[in-house]
């Protein structure tokens, strides 16, 4: 729909107005103007190789920088990351010490809200809520990142193997793909929480369990996604062209199919990070997480706070808000990356 008109056309300059009076203008002015115009045409037609050419990733990055959604997401994540790194050092008190144990009586419904010494108040055991939030950020991030990494790595290996087999493996490859994909379909069909609970049941109650459980849930998603993406790329014309050139299959998969398939998977991983944090929180909430409840983690904090929700709702709201904002940050970034990496939206 767009045109190649170079843009400077003012709307009023388009009417079929009288021809530019070549003969009426003063002679010298015309010649100098003419010269300018010839130079202008030369410049237009000879705008040579100043652009060095930028790859797809470079351009995606450039577009990401111009995208407000991406900047907000990045900002949120940056704050989160900084907190996760420096949290333990800036926390005003120890997150585990029950310093104000004597001021909180959960069975009598007496809690301590925000006050000058404890900005976010105390939890049900008389620990400083702010300190627990700050220190808990690291655990939460760790759970999300490790779980997603597990899902991404294993899922991408399975999906990549299956996709490569299907795309360029001929008849045998198709059989391999069918077997692998039916297996992941079964995984996909299981309710994710049930899967996670089963993993947790096998491995026992620990933080590792939560990470593995959440990661395993992500595996079939990543596998399916990468395989589908690879299949689409393998059917593209440039892969056909590479085959026609006589390029080896292994190189076609590694140099053509895989790099072009990774875009959606990377986007998915940012979105998966958000769900991983939420699911980890859910598992902790169900009591499958870290058995040492003293170690702060947002999901565990939320789980514990729900018992006192009637009397001290803010105790649950703080970790919940933390989880929601972080997940939102990842989601925003993921959406922006999806847009930036979409080749259809280029140019």
């Amino acid at each position: 729909m767009g045109t190649e008109t170079t843009g400077a056309t003012p709307p009023d300059g388009d009417a079929p107005r009288p021809a530019p009076p070549a003969g009426t203008a003063a002679g010298t002015a015309v010649t100098s103007r003419r010269k300018d115009r010839i130079d202008r045409l030369a410049e237009l037609t000879a705008r040579t190789d100043t652009s060095t050419g930028s790859g797809l990733w470079v351009e995606a990055l450039r577009r990401l920088r111009a995208n407000k959604t991406a900047l907000i997401g990045l900002g949120v994540l940056a704050v989160f990351l900084v907190l996760a790194v420096i949290g333990p050092w800036i926390a005003p008190y120890s997150p585990t010490a029950q310093t104000w144990r004597g001021e909180v009586f959960p069975n009598r419904g007496i809690f301590v809200g925000p006050r000058s010494g404890n900005w976010l108040g105390l939890d049900h055991l008389g620990r400083d809520e702010l300190s627990r939030m700050l220190v808990g950020a690291r655990q939460t991030l760790l759970v999300g990142v490790v779980a997603t990494l597990i899902g991404f790595t294993v899922g991408a290996l399975i999906g990549g193997f299956s996709g490569a087999a299907l795309a360029l493996g001929g008849r045998a490859g198709r059989t391999v793909d069918t077997v692998v994909m039916r297996f992941t379909d079964m995984l996909l069909a299981l309710p994710s929480l049930l899967l996670a609970v089963s993993v947790a049941a096998i491995m026992g109650q620990s933080l590792t369990t939560v990470m593995v459980a959440v990661g395993v849930v992500q595996i079939p998603v990543f596998a399916r996604l990468l395989r589908g993406s690879m299949l689409a790329q393998a059917n593209s014309d440039y892969v056909l062209a590479a085959r026609a050139l006589g390029v080896r299959r292994r190189r076609i998969v590694l140099a053509h199919v895989l790099p072009n398939s990774l875009g959606p998977v990377i986007v998915q991983s940012t979105l998966a990070l958000a769900t991983a944090i939420i699911e980890a929180a859910a598992l902790s909430f169900l009591g499958l997480g870290n058995p040492d409840a003293a170690q702060p983690e947002w999901g565990v904090m939320l789980a514990q706070a729900q018992r006192f929700f009637d009397q001290a709702p803010m105790m649950a709201v703080y970790p919940a808000l933390g989880i929601i904002i972080t997940a939102l940050g990842f989601t925003l970034l993921g959406e922006a990356m999806r847009e930036a990496l979409d080749p259809k939206l280029r140019s």
Binding site: G55, L56, W57, S236, D237, Y238, L240, A241, A242, H256, P259, N260, P343
Partner: peptide, 12 residues
């Protein structure tokens, strides 16, 4: 030589 000049070139 292929029909779709853009599609037959790897964008990366």
């Amino acid at each position: 030589v292929f029909q779709d000049p853009l599609g037959s070139l790897n964008p990366r």
